[in-house]
Design a protein around this nucleic acid. Structure first.
Lengths: 217, 217
DNA sequence: GACAGCATACCAACTGGTTGGTATATCCGG
DNA sequence: CCGGATATACCAACCAGTTGGTATGCTGTC
């Protein structure tokens, strides 16, 4: 389209710095607990700049959720798990990839939109919609590989759909993040989350190997 | 112990009304977005009464998390899924029960401590610890039945433990709540969550039937 | 290529209202 | 008439958002 949207520029604008700040600060403190001043301080920008680029704090949250969709979309699109010919290997590769990136402190591997939607689902439809789109669009990518794997193995009418399994993967991840937050210690959280992802992987494997043998529900 | 803790009394005290208010208001708005005035208004109590019973907003959150542990503990202890002799049936009964209570509006079936820990894990160790205790103690109950079921079927060294599976059930539930919040519509959220619980049930079933046949990892 | 004209980007200081919390007064049962 | 429970009035700090203004860059014209 135009240069503005495609080129993040050498010297980042206040808008980009604020969105980056939102990624880290909101994941650490939550949305409501994060003040506009917090974001400005982290971004190294003044309040005037904030309200020049965003009409409200809520609008920044929506923009951050959309920016999160783009950033994670590019991140997962560039990940290596898309290579295998067998769609099931791609699905399992995705799960393995999600497990591998569970590292560092909790705010570093948790999900911005999952955090935000918890706080905003009742008070701000705009934020909720942006977060929903981020989660569900991401799930739709996995759904495609799952559907292919099902087709290849002749699985249908099994009591579950590609869509429900794709959404289940997201539920497991979001839930794993909550347990990680509750756990408290640095690595402890990541390990805890990883164990849930292990269960998820085992489930998907069993789902496809068992169903292969007898796919009569 | 004493009467204070065991008897909720005919006319509820301001403390009890505030804790009840916290259950509904915080699940709807989140912790940070809920003001002390909000809680007082909902409880029908003045600010003076609030700070007579709780030294701070944070202290109320801790008390609410502990009260949540007691209330849900009694609720699940009284549930009918404990009856079966086969421990696996008790585990599956628990999952079925969790699925059955996914009804009504989102704030009605979601988890107080799961919501709170997301916002407070970084800023308030006290709240985080109270929420962690609530989640992990609840998981410990399920872990007992899982461990029994594993013993009965001779499952060990299977790559997973009773504890990790018990925590996984909580992760799935917490994640299902997030998807429900993101979904937006009334029943839509509950249905979405129910589908994840269905996957969880299927997983546990497969885990025990498959492992029974060949439990060599 | 110089320069007027204008939009964008940004800033420091400020505002009205809300926040968590306090000081003090009143109610009411034993 | 004492002491826990509740109410009223209030405060300093903080909140999201506004203001009036400056710096910087782009654009067309001669």
């Amino acid at each position: 389209m135009n240069q503005k949207t495609t080129k993040p520029a050498a010297r980042p604008t206040a808008r980009e710095k604020l969105l980056d700040a939102a990624f880290s600060v909101i994941r650490e403190q939550g949305y409501s607990a994060t003040s506009v001043d917090d974001l400005c301080r982290t971004a190294g920008v003044t309040k005037g700049a904030f309200f020049h680029h965003f009409p409200s704090k809520e609008a920044l949250a929506v923009a951050a959720a959309n920016h999160w969709s783009e950033a994670t979309g590019a991140f997962f699109a560039a990940a290596p798990y898309h290579d295998p010919k067998d769609p099931l290997d791609r699905v399992l590769g995705y799960v393995d990839f999600r497990r591998a990136i569970l590292q560092g402190d909790v705010p570093e591997f948790t999900c911005l939109v999952g955090t935000m939607v918890q706080e905003a689902y009742g008070s701000s439809p705009d934020i909720r919609d942006a977060c929903r789109a981020s989660i569900f669009d991401h799930a739709a990518n996995i759904e495609r590989d799952i559907a292919e794997a099902m087709a290849e193995r002749g699985i249908n009418n099994a009591g579950w759909t590609a869509r429900s399994l794709a959404l289940h993967t997201q539920a497991v991840l979001q839930g794993a993040f909550i347990l990680a937050k509750a756990e408290g210690t640095a690595d402890g959280g990541a390990n805890l989350a990883a164990q849930s992802v292990d269960h998820l992987r085992r489930y998907i494997e069993m789902l496809f190997t068992t169903e292969k043998l007898s796919h009569a529900a």
